[in-house]
């Protein structure tokens, strides 16, 4: 039922606590606090399964999803079938499905209530506006502009405090590119102090200039982006070294002083 290799992304929580998870499909879970239970344990029930596959046999595995913080009825998913799907969670229907990229879409992130960005194996970050479905804006393409094959992009994160900035990671790369959506094509800066490939990035929920990254070098780095990148690049301000490669990292929007990292079989909470 639940893909074991998939971690759950706790994207958003509103009054009744809902949990969404992705894998083959998006599943919405409702967490109910058991008031008559003295130990305070809660029960989780599956609310709905959002399945858009038209072919009964095969699903198009989802690579990521994002719950729109500005428009909580919207969840956007990205899939290896090159599409992004926007779900109306309340009604459990597909609001729209866009062929977003030429190759697998690896990540999706909302910027505004009707604007999302996606990163893909085709090496591009594109921004979509649901109000104009005919066009997308390519704000970054990895690799040389017209030559050489592009490097797949794995993850991206949209700076919720300053929507001009998006960060993205490349496959097998220790670099993080920071993009300014007003200046497509060229990243405004690259963060390249990791010594292994970067696995996760997260903007600080309370600051427009801070971003945390974690990677295969077992490090979690917190960066403070300068107004102008110096010639020698940007150094992170803080670092944490875990016992092994950090696979996942989240910066809690509700508890902005806490960062969660996952490595090996461990989950650690780091206070900043």
């Amino acid at each position: 039922m639940f893909n074991p290799t998939h971690h759950n992304n706790n994207a958003s929580a509103t009054d009744p606590l809902f949990l969404a998870s992705s894998g083959d499909y998006i599943r919405i879970w409702e967490i109910q606090h058991n008031s008559n239970s003295s130990n305070g344990c809660s029960s989780i029930t599956q609310k709905s399964v959002l399945d858009n596959s038209k072919c009964s046999e095969l699903c198009s595995p989802l690579t990521s999803f994002d719950w729109n913080p500005m428009e909580p009825r919207r969840i956007g998913t990205s899939s290896i079938d090159t599409t992004c799907t926007v779900w109306d969670v309340e009604r459990g229907i597909v609001e729209m499905q866009l062929i977003a990229h030429d190759k697998e879409v690896h990540d999706i992130a909302w910027g505004e209530s009707s604007v999302f960005a996606s990163a893909s194996a085709d090496g591009s970050v594109r921004i979509f506006d649901l109000r104009d479905k005919e066009h997308s804006t390519i704000i970054y393409e990895s690799g040389d502009s017209s030559l050489s094959q592009s490097t797949p992009l794995l993850r991206l994160a949209w700076n919720k405090q300053d929507l001009r900035y998006i960060a993205a990671t490349l496959m097998d790369s220790s670099r993080i590119v920071v993009l300014d959506i007003r200046f497509p094509v060229m990243p405004v800066m690259e963060l390249s102090r990791h010594r292994g490939s970067v696995n996760a990035i997260a903007w600080a929920p309370q600051s427009s200039r801070h971003i945390c990254s974690a990677g295969d070098d077992s490090q979690a780095l917190i960066w403070e982006l300068p107004a102008v990148a110096g010639p020698s690049g940007v150094d992170p301000v803080l670092a944490y070294t875990a016992e092994s490669e950090i696979n996942q990292m989240q910066w809690s929007p509700l508890q902005p002083d806490w960062i969660a990292i996952a490595f090996a079989s461990k989950l650690q909470l780091l206070k900043v």
Partner: peptide, 22 residues
């Protein structure tokens, strides 16, 4: 130390993020 170990492990297995994307 961390760099070496990290490099070794990369050879052993791919990062989780890769296995969940590409």
């Amino acid at each position: 130390s961390s760099e070496k170990s990290g490099a070794l492990r990369v050879v052993v297995r791919k990062p989780l993020v890769l296995r969940l994307t590409t």
